[in-house]
């Protein structure tokens, strides 16, 4: 089956993002396809490229990126939620005249429309919230 996840919790503040990753690994192990992870609300902090957890803790940003590289999972971040919280890519940084950018690649800024679309085009949408 084709799965999409909606992640709304910030990493290291709540368990939501950690649970979502565990669920992602488990569904892939059962031969499903994880096509989309959509980050909304405080979930957008999962895309922070400057996140620097201690070495002995889970590296969540790396783990999301690995899903993208190994399984082609699209990592979509709500642009409106992200901009408010200081998670910006190069293009938005330029648009708003800011210095620097903070969105890890291959996360992509996108509209909430992509979430609605994912909910309609995937077999399952599972929400992980704080």
């Amino acid at each position: 089956m084709r799965y999409a996840l909606l992640v709304q919790g910030a990493p290291y503040s709540h368990q939501a993002a950690h649970s979502a990753l565990r669920f992602a690994e488990a569904l892939i192990a059962r031969s499903h396809r994880l096509e989309t992870v959509f980050f909304y609300h405080d979930g957008v902090y999962n895309a922070q490229r400057l996140a620097t957890p201690p070495q002995d803790e889970p590296q969540l940003v790396d783990a999301w990126c690995r899903l993208h590289h190994e399984h082609g999972t699209a990592l979509l971040v709500c642009v409106a939620a992200a901009l408010r919280r200081g998670v910006v890519d190069e293009r938005e940084s330029r648009r708003h005249g800011k210095q620097g950018h903070s969105l890890e690649s291959p996360f992509e800024l996108t509209g909430v429309g992509q979430l609605v679309e994912a909910a309609m085009t995937h077999d399952r949408l599972i929400t992980f919230s704080p």
Binding site: F23, H32, L125
Partner: peptide, 14 residues
């Protein structure tokens, strides 16, 4: 966790 995934397979929506 595998059981969790199975439950989502069996359900129409979560």
């Amino acid at each position: 966790m595998e059981g969790f995934v199975q439950l989502t397979e069996d359900a129409d929506r979560v």
